[in-house]
């Protein structure tokens, strides 16, 4: 369960958002500039709210009233960025293993095998990120985040930098992830079609405010443009 009740001033723009979601996949939906990335960065601990509370499974990670701010590296919250951000000096195997090493977790070959199978990246292990296609990079980034064994997985427009063909290639992996992995996710997108396929609950944002919250039925019909 994810509870967010925060406000943050960013120059002229302000984010003031409050919601609590039980969903397996919470979708943050809105046009660019709606505050989706600022919000997800606050959940990750990369951005500190001016005021408010962020809690995962009842454990507060930010509580400005109590002066609490758990730094990103102690949150156990995975993050898949739009631009993958694989470490260029490490090969795929080392990228995948990074989170386990940093969290001092024991090696778990079964989990590793499950994740590499789920994402079909077994054949890429010895390659460097520079030698991967956009879709492969995004799958490795997913695997890397999962293998750090997070309690919550944030995905910030993971398909945003891919062309239509690649999107179609990745979407089934995300669905499998939702159905097979037991990690709750927060999925950011401005694409209503993607949201409809993946999200179990939707937070609709516009100019830093929540304008609708509920099941996928709150999404505009596919023909319409995303909320602006």
């Amino acid at each position: 369960m994810l509870r967010v009740d925060v406000s943050k001033q960013l120059g002229e723009f302000s984010v003031e958002v409050s919601f609590a979601s039980e969903g397996r996949v919470t979708g943050l939906f809105g046009a660019s500039g709606a505050g989706k990335t600022s919000l997800i960065n606050m959940i990750a601990g990369l951005l500190r709210p001016d005021r408010g509370i962020i809690a995962v499974d009842g454990e507060a990670l930010d509580d400005t009233a109590g002066g609490l701010h758990v730094p990103a590296h102690r949150r156990r919250i995975g993050y898949v960025f739009q631009d993958a951000r694989l470490f260029p000096h490490l090969d795929v195997r080392q990228n995948l293993d990074y989170g386990r090493r940093m969290n001092r977790l024991a090696e778990d070959p079964a989990l590793q095998a499950r994740v590499t199978d789920l994402l079909d990246i077994g054949g890429l292990l010895d390659r460097r990120p520079g030698r991967l296609s956009g879709g492969e990079r995004q799958r490795v980034a997913l695997g890397r985040a999962l293998l750090a064994q997070p309690r919550l997985l944030l995905l910030d427009e993971p398909l945003g930098s891919l062309d239509e063909e690649r999107k179609v290639e990745i979407l089934p992996y995300l669905e499998r992830l939702r159905d097979e992995a037991s990690v709750p996710m927060v999925y950011v997108s401005h694409d209503a079609g993607e949201m409809r396929r993946l999200a179990t609950q939707v937070v609709m944002l516009r100019r830093g405010r929540v304008i609708a919250f509920g099941g996928p039925e709150v999404l505009p019909s596919t023909a319409a443009n995303p909320a602006g």
Partner: peptide, 24 residues
């Protein structure tokens, strides 16, 4: 942004420096 990514994977700042910043 790579250093941020390392942070979200559980690396404290000094390990981010040793494993990401310094090698790069």
């Amino acid at each position: 942004r790579l250093e941020q990514a390392a942070g979200t994977l559980g690396a404290p700042p000094w390990r981010v420096f040793l494993t990401i910043t310094l090698p790069l």
